[in-house]
């Protein structure tokens, strides 16, 4: 079994995609993607609907494989190991590369259990669960709101709180990278702002890749921005990838400028 231990690597890049092609059956959803994600930075992936940004994101923790007709070619290097190697277990990949979804999806369990379940069942954490639950909820900026109602159902929280609970749940298993698939798109503006602030806090400890529909969000919250677009054959491809400040002020490609200025998409 290849080791995905995050301590085994401290290079500049957390994840590196090489010649990544993603298919649903015969349909190529994303083609020839090469990109590197810098450690402890926030990278936003933007692009029009259907350009394959979520597919790319889910390729980084092999989440796509839950769809039977999906397959990938190319490499995704995480801590020096290609996670698509035959000897890599996708379960192990997902434990190190966590994911937050578009719609808040807490487990139908208590708030405490939502965070503790993964720690108990997935990691070999031997310390006290109470401590890690508190720590994770604090990291997700939710502790003060829920510390007295830890035994209540996670589903009883508001949408924004639920999403922060999902973030806490992801952080509790101590991942290296956190993938976020439009984490704020189902939330109101205030809850969205809180999530964005939270993401800024989290980049101290985690590498964050976030897919977003919202260009202002990408401009506000990310260090790097990648712009995907669709080909004539509907395959998504990486148009431009650079520092967010440059992308939004002085993009290299005409296509990027058109998209960012709202001329299509």
């Amino acid at each position: 079994m290849a080791s995905l231990n995050p301590e085994s690597s401290n290079g500049r890049y957390a994840i590196e995609a090489k010649d990544l092609n993603l298919y649903y059956g015969d349909f190529r959803a994303v083609k020839d993607t090469n990109m590197k994600f810098e450690r402890n930075k926030i990278t936003a992936i933007i692009g029009p609907s259907g350009c394959g940004k979520s597919t790319v994101l889910r390729a980084f923790n092999r989440m796509n494989e839950l769809i039977p007709i999906y397959h990938a070619t190319g490499e995704v290097i995480f801590n020096g190991t290609n996670i698509y190697n035959d000897d890599v277990d996708p379960v192990e990949v997902r434990r190190h590369i966590g994911m937050v979804f578009q719609k808040p999806n807490p487990f139908p369990k208590s708030i405490y259990e939502n965070v503790a379940w993964g720690v108990r069942k997935v990691t070999n954490y031997k310390g006290k669960l109470d401590d890690i639950v508190e720590q994770s909820l604090r990291q997700a900026a939710l502790w003060d709101e829920v510390k007295d109602i830890l035994d209540q159902s996670g589903l009883a929280l508001s949408g924004g709180q639920q999403q922060r609970l999902c973030i806490a749940r992801t952080l509790a298993v101590k991942p290296n990278v956190v993938l976020m698939d439009e984490p704020a798109s189902a939330l109101d503006p205030i809850a969205t702002l809180r999530i964005e602030e939270l993401i800024q806090e989290l980049k101290k400890d985690y590498t964050i890749i976030i897919v977003t529909h919202n260009m202002q969000q990408a401009a506000r919250a990310s260090d790097y921005t990648a712009f995907f677009n669709m080909d004539e054959d509907r395959a998504g491809f990486l148009v431009e990838y650079d520092r967010t400040t440059k992308m939004f002020t002085n993009p290299e490609k005409r296509l990027t400028e058109d998209y960012i200025s709202g001329r299509f998409g």
Partner: peptide
């Protein structure tokens, strides 16, 4: 059972049986 629940579980590294 909503698929989002399965994804939530897989997303933190749970096995299929878990």
């Amino acid at each position: 059972v909503p698929n989002s629940l399965r994804q939530a579980s897989y997303g933190i590294g749970a096995t299929r049986w878990q």
